[in-house]
Design a protein around this nucleic acid. Structure first.
Lengths: 187, 187
DNA sequence: ATCCTCTATGCAACTCGTTTCATAGGCAAG
DNA sequence: CTTGCCTATGAAACGAGTTGCATAGAGGAT
């Protein structure tokens, strides 16, 4: 389980409340780790009990109070220990791959339209990543001398970009294959 | 949840027992969908109760009896209905990306060695995929006129190959970035 | 006025997936 | 001859993740 560690990294990059964390998990961190606010609140509470993070309540005007979290020394130690553990192989779950192989026994055309829609989603995601890269790393507003944190954030984002590019190329391959089969079997 | 559907696809491609399915989920299907034998047995039982698959016991000599499963009409209908549903965005969980961003606050060198090891795993996986492609699709023993099922299996495998190639290139980028930071911060 | 959205946190119930254990005969290596 | 692996299935407990609901004030839209 690495949600704790994802939260530690995010809080080390910038401390904040559970709500703020939840929004980060819809944005930058969310590119490679998803979590709902439920999970985040629950895990944050456990981490506080374990002394990994320290919280202090912040009163706000016109808004509900919030609990501001920062990483405690024990949390830093836990992260460091986790970094030394071997990387466990990710367990893959690709609905689309199952559907593609299932298309041999179902409706090819329906899948074709779905893949076209899916391609647009990934195309949009690539554009979004590239805009973020331009804004934070390669554009004129980016820092001239990036620190380690910055460079590591960038290399992770480059991974997301590479993934989306690869996916788009593969989806084109999938579309071409589906069309070829459809024309051959139902001319 | 798509494990049911992954099982339906696998049983349509070739009927078999729960044990055989579990082994396929360590091989071809396992490239894009992981499942333990526990899950498979449990879900198979539910699918049998729902009339998605039909089972008949097969007595064997020198081996335990096995339950042979085949897809029933209701299962085919369920798969077809699922193929028409929109593809839901995959929920990503990349431990490595978390670790890379965490390395800004921990031991860079330890991660470097881990990434090198991780790279070897993916290198081996790519070789394995390519051997499978040669054996089943592009080599001399592959069928000259592949059917739809065959072609769809191939395009999914090409996706796996593209993924591994992309991953290897990105890991080289990661390694170069980690080394650059290490030499700059601790010369 | 009423509805919706945003901020901000949390409980409760449920489903899905993993881990551990159990059974049981055959077969091969040491 | 005993230890371990392969086939074959399954129960039980646990942990992680999702979904629905609740609260509550501020602000904007219709």
């Amino acid at each position: 389980m690495a949600l704790e560690h994802a939260i530690l990294v995010s809080l080390l990059e910038k401390p904040g409340s559970g709500y703020e964390l939840a929004r980060r998990f819809d944005r930058s961190i969310g590119y490679f780790w998803t979590a709902t606010h439920q999970q985040i609140y629950r895990v944050l509470k456990r981490m506080e009990n374990d002394g990994w993070v320290a919280a202090h309540e912040v009163a706000q005007q016109g808004r509900p109070d919030k609990k501001h979290y920062a990483v405690a020394p024990a949390g830093r130690a836990a992260l460091s220990a986790w970094l030394h553990e071997p990387i466990e192989p990710e367990s893959v779950r690709h609905d689309l791959a199952v559907k593609i192989r299932g298309a041999a026994f179902g409706d090819l055309s329906a899948l074709l339209h779905e893949v076209e829609r899916y391609r647009q989603v990934h195309s949009g995601r690539l554009a979004h990543y590239r805009a973020g890269e331009e804004r934070d790393f390669t554009g004129p507003d980016a820092p001239a001398e990036p620190d380690a944190m910055h460079e590591l954030q960038h290399v992770v984002l480059r991974g997301g970009i590479a993934y989306e590019q690869m996916t788009l190329a593969w989806l084109d391959d999938v579309l071409a294959t589906l069309r070829r089969i459809r024309e051959r079997t139902a001319p």
